[in-house]
Design a protein around this nucleic acid. Structure first.
Length: 281
DNA sequence: CGGCAGGGAGGCC
DNA sequence: GGCCTCCCTGCC
């Protein structure tokens, strides 16, 4: 296998911290079929070995290996809770997910836990996705908006989406009509992109921030879900005192942690979920 | 089995 | 803006 150098990086912490649903554990590494091809990656110390079905993937971009992690961590560590969170998984980086699969996965995440979301994503691949050949076997990739649009809301409900089926249907229609596109969002500032994303059905404050951070690279986005909300209540009076609304707390987090607030959120999220250890700080 | 989750829409004020 | 209710589904 070919490899690239990957310093200050943990593949496992990065893909298993709830920010991506595009990587599936396989052998000693992870495989993704949601990148327009099949990509297998495996970390051995500071090297990222990989194998693909087609052209070379931009692994440095996908895992944001060129983000100045030392500087980022120095910037966001402003208290003991964040110190412990960063020390817990110092190789955790924000991912750069493919836009449409990311959007759909976080719409489907509403009131669903991570295993269920992974299962739904696989159903999308099995039912509507393209087929790739890899190492002599056939694998299904995540479908394009065009492929999902061939399904009716009723078909989508069959995937276990429930009332989220209408969200997926309407959002896919909006993407196909170019009401919202990845290109236009990437030309915007964070606030404008967040606002634009919320015009999509099923995309509120939290889902919009997840797409901003985990796909579009707006590192200042600070998604607040119930886990982060608990941390804020328990450890960050400075944020909860900013107000009760999502917008106020999220803005306060950007002011407190700075331009890399998204990294702060992800370190907190991962640390908190891996055993509620923040309680003992 | 009743209750409850890793949000958002739509209606209301 | 803030608050309220409803929403599928799986799981305890």
């Amino acid at each position: 296998m070919r490899y690239i150098q990957a310093d200050d990086f943990s593949l496992r912490d990065t893909v298993e911290s709830g920010q991506t649903f595009n990587w599936i554990e396989k052998e000693a590494g992870y495989i993704s079929t949601d990148l327009g091809q099949v990509v297998y990656v495996e970390q051995r110390k500071n090297r990222l070995y990989y194998e693909t079905s087609h052209h070379g993937p931009d692994l440095r971009g996908l895992f944001r290996l060129d983000d100045p992690l030392t500087e980022i961590q120095k910037e966001i560590v402003r208290d003991d809770t964040m110190r412990a969170s960063v020390d817990f998984a110092p190789g955790l980086r924000i991912v750069s997910n493919p836009f449409y699969p990311c959007l759909i996965s976080f719409i489907c995440s509403i009131r669903k836990n991570i295993p269920t979301i992974k299962s739904i994503m696989q159903s999308f691949r099995d039912r509507f996705g393209p087929t790739y050949q890899f190492r002599g076997e056939q694998l299904k990739g995540f479908p394009s908006p065009e492929q999902v649009a061939e399904a009716s809301p009723k078909d989508l409900r069959g995937l276990g989406l429930g009332w989220r089926a209408d969200f997926v249907y309407k959002t896919t229609q909006a993407i196909l009509q170019d009401d919202v596109s990845e290109a236009m969002l990437r030309e915007m500032e964070y606030e404008a992109a967040h606002k634009k994303l919320k015009t999509l059905h099923g995309v509120g404050d939290k889902v919009a921030d997840c797409v901003c951070l985990f796909s579009l690279g707006f590192l200042e986005a600070f998604p607040i879900d119930v886990w982060i909300e608990r941390v804020i209540q328990d450890k960050y009076g400075i944020l909860s005192s900013a107000g009760k609304s999502y917008a106020k707390k999220s803005r306060a987090a950007r002011e407190y942690f700075g331009k890399y607030a998204g990294y702060a959120q992800e370190y907190l999220f991962h640390y908190t979920r891996m055993g509620n250890q923040y309680r003992s700080i």
